[in-house]
Amino acid sequence: MAYARSRMLCAAARLGVADALGDEVRGVDFLAESCQADADALYRLLRALASIGVTEETSPEHFRLTPFGKPLRRDVPDSVWAAVIFWADLLADEWSLLTDCVRTGKPAAQIRDPRIPSRWSQDPGADSIFHAVMGTAPVEDYASIAEAWDFSRAKVVADLGGGGGSLILAVLGLNPHLRGLLVDLEPSVDAARSGFAQEDPALRCELIAADLMQAVPPGADVYILKHVLHGRRDAEAITILKNCRAVIPQNGSLLIVEFILPSLVSHADPQLESHLMSDLNMLAVTGGRERSEREWRVLLESAGFVLTEVYPVGTDAPMVRNVGILEAKPAKE
């Protein structure tokens, strides 16, 4: 029944319950009209939400939002509305097919009955929700990655698949001598552009639209891939790595920032559980996978790289918790 809370939160987010409540105490009839919901059914949802601290029933059939529930509103700075929809609705649709994904080794998109469209394909806001959830952490959350590797001898650093640009800005902010490249698909680059202020270090960063499966832009001596390859099957990951190998200088460095799975899972571990859940998420949603150090080494060697070092990254920031930096160098030709 662990899924029940996520479905409750998802229903509240989809109906706009938190937005309808705002900062006021509201009656069920008012909320039902605002949310276009059945009053009795909505009351039952609000009552259940109160039991987990999202709402509070102040008098019979009158509710207000608690401080804990406030982030469900769309109009607050720390809104989690998009994240709730993303994880508890759009991706839960893929997870519902996990049994068949395990049986076949294929992602949900390849085994779903083609007559039944996915929730993702039916939601016109799916792409904007994705971009709101992924790659939008503040620059300071990426400081631990920027500090974990020595960029002092680098000249130009390229963040491949860098999303909103927080990681490259963190690296540039700590290394005033560097220039940067933010590389991603055109929609992501366009979305990131508005967040780049006309001041250092953003002025030292060039934004480039590119498909990494086709080619990687030249011009850097350090290339970073953060949480890009875990979403890819081995063959696709090798293609991207080979495209990196084609442009990286012989003395350059490739930094892969990813979870690194242990070779053996011998006991219960809550932190490791999140990585293994991510692995199953890749299985169901993208066809990719989380990998162990040995698997990363084999993948890199297949693309003409040598794994030279693994650097731990210590941080409590949710977007980069428990990742490592795999440093690779071009293999000698």
Rank of each mutant, 00 (worst) to 15 (best):
V310Q: 05
R291P: 09
L299E: 07
H267R: 14
G288P: 04
L229Y: 09
E293V: 09
N251V: 06
N281T: 15
H267Y: 08
Y311K: 15
S292H: 12
I260F: 04
L307P: 00
R232P: 00
A237Q: 08
V228I: 15
E258F: 01
G288M: 06
A268K: 04
G304Y: 02
N243T: 04
R233Y: 03
S278M: 15
D234H: 07
H230S: 11
A246C: 03
H227Q: 10
H267L: 05
W296K: 05
L255H: 05
Y311D: 06
I256H: 02
F259V: 04
Y311Q: 14
L272T: 11
S266G: 04
R289V: 05
I238C: 08
P262K: 09
S263E: 15
D234A: 14
G304Q: 00
P262R: 12
L299C: 12
L272D: 11
A284N: 10
E258W: 01
C244F: 02
G252V: 12
E290Q: 13
V310E: 03
L254H: 01
P262I: 08
E290I: 05
F259E: 07
E290V: 06
C244W: 01
S274R: 13
G304C: 01
V228C: 11
S292C: 10
E293I: 07
T239Y: 03
E290M: 09
N251H: 13
P249T: 08
D279M: 10
G287S: 06
I260Q: 03
S274E: 14
S292L: 12
Q271Y: 07
I260V: 15
I238Q: 14
F259M: 09
L225W: 11
H275N: 05
S292F: 11
D269F: 04
L261N: 05
T286A: 14
L280G: 06
P270G: 07
R233Q: 11
P262E: 10
H227Y: 06
R297Y: 05
E293A: 15
R232N: 03
E309A: 08
Y311W: 12
S292M: 10
S263G: 15
R245S: 00
K226C: 00
I224T: 04
H267D: 11
H227W: 08
I238T: 15
T308C: 01
T286M: 12
D234Y: 04
H267A: 15
A317Y: 03
P249Y: 11
A237W: 03
S278E: 14
A235Y: 08
L254T: 00
A268P: 01
I260H: 02
N243K: 03
E293F: 06
I224L: 14
L225F: 13
L264G: 04
I248N: 10
L307G: 00
I260L: 10
I260P: 00
P249E: 07
A237M: 09
G252C: 13
M282R: 15
T308K: 01
M282T: 13
R294H: 12
E290L: 08
F259D: 07
I240L: 06
A303L: 03
K226D: 00
S278H: 14
A284W: 03
S266C: 05
E290C: 06
L261I: 08
G231N: 15
L241G: 01
L272G: 09
N243A: 04
L300G: 01
Q271K: 11
E309P: 01
H267M: 10
C244N: 05
V313M: 13
G252R: 14
V285F: 12
I260R: 02
P270L: 12
